[in-house]
Design a protein around this nucleic acid. Sequence first.
DNA 1: TCTGGGGTCCTAGGACCC
DNA 2: TCTGGGGTCCTAGGACCC
Length: 387
Amino acid sequence: MMRQVLHIDMDAFFASVEQQTFPFLRGRPIGVCSHPQGRTVIATASYEARAYGVKTAMTIPQARKLCPEITLVRCNLAKYIDTSTRIMAICSRFTDSVEVFSIDEAFLDVTNTAHLFGGADTIARKIKQELSGRFGLTCSIGIAPNKLLAKLVGEMHKPDGLTIIRPEEVPVLLEKIIVEEMCGIGPKTAAKLHRLGIKSCGELGRYPEKALVRIFGVKGVHLHHIGKGIDESPVRPYFHKPPAKSMGHSMTFDKDTRNMAIIRHHLFQLSEQVGRRLRKDNYAGRTVSLVLRYADFTTMVRQHSLKNWTNDGRRIYQTGLALFYKLYQPPRYVRLIGISVSNLIQQTRQTSMFEHPETLRSAVDNLNNRFGEFRVTRAQNMKNMNR
DNA sequence: TCTGGGGTCCTAGGACCC
DNA sequence: TCTGGGGTCCTAGGACCC
């Protein structure tokens, strides 16, 4: 049975949410970023800003050069998560097969429910209408026989687009699509394909599968499928969301530094944040990874596996700090540090396998969850340091 | 004022055990 | 006294996604 899959992608999501919250931002070029004064990049640019060439991942100076009148807005992730949750709830009214692909993207398998609403295209129009009416937000929707193609065609008419591709139209489409437009083919793979004389998906699909496997390993099979427009992967409902594999935080210093007190201070804060997030969802992990990026952008990762699972910020910090000292080459300036915990297990309730009593930490967590990060923290952390 | 921050998956080599 | 082979865990690095 031919499947009917919708891909829904919110248009300039973070920026559009901000423009809805603050009407004076509407119609103006804005960029959302994590901390507008610091060393950061544009997370999302409004369409007005995109008209000037401002794009995601651009630095603030670059964006300002292209668009001097751009308004920078601080990222408010909690608000976007809240809006996203409500958007996903609306999608769930049309099928229980909704996969939350990212904060602003979802796949819907409507194969079994389309007839209840008058067809997949009607569902798409209803969702658009609903999101516009309730939130003032637009989205772009692609409808296709599988996720790969739904995502591809959904991107063809942004913003506020609706693109449908029928099975018989797929071969002609694939001839027109260049490989780097496909989800899963990044710059490195695209360059490698170009060297093989492969530009379009049609060409990729005709390239012998065996040769692709020889060159790319297991990924060759996947590439062959991409070239043919084949994707059997199911839409995974959000309630089957797999457990997390890792949790981490990192930060770029506003100025490169080699001041150990500053580095330790931020490493400690990042570790506490990671521990708190692990505890919030009842995770504990055994492997601690430390990321270190020098001023010249060389980036290194070192990891260490512990004997016991932990979700204690202090334990994570101690392990991370030991890794830092092993890795760090002293006179060099540090640009970024990060810490993450992997090898996770999830408990349904608190058990004795954690190293320390939970009572104090969960009380501190509750306070911080309610009143904000680091309102209550360890005395060691109180020295007021600037980034 | 070049180059954020959060993830997942894959590969490849070495240690170690049977 | 010529050493195979399978399995698992660990670590480092890279590609890719939003």
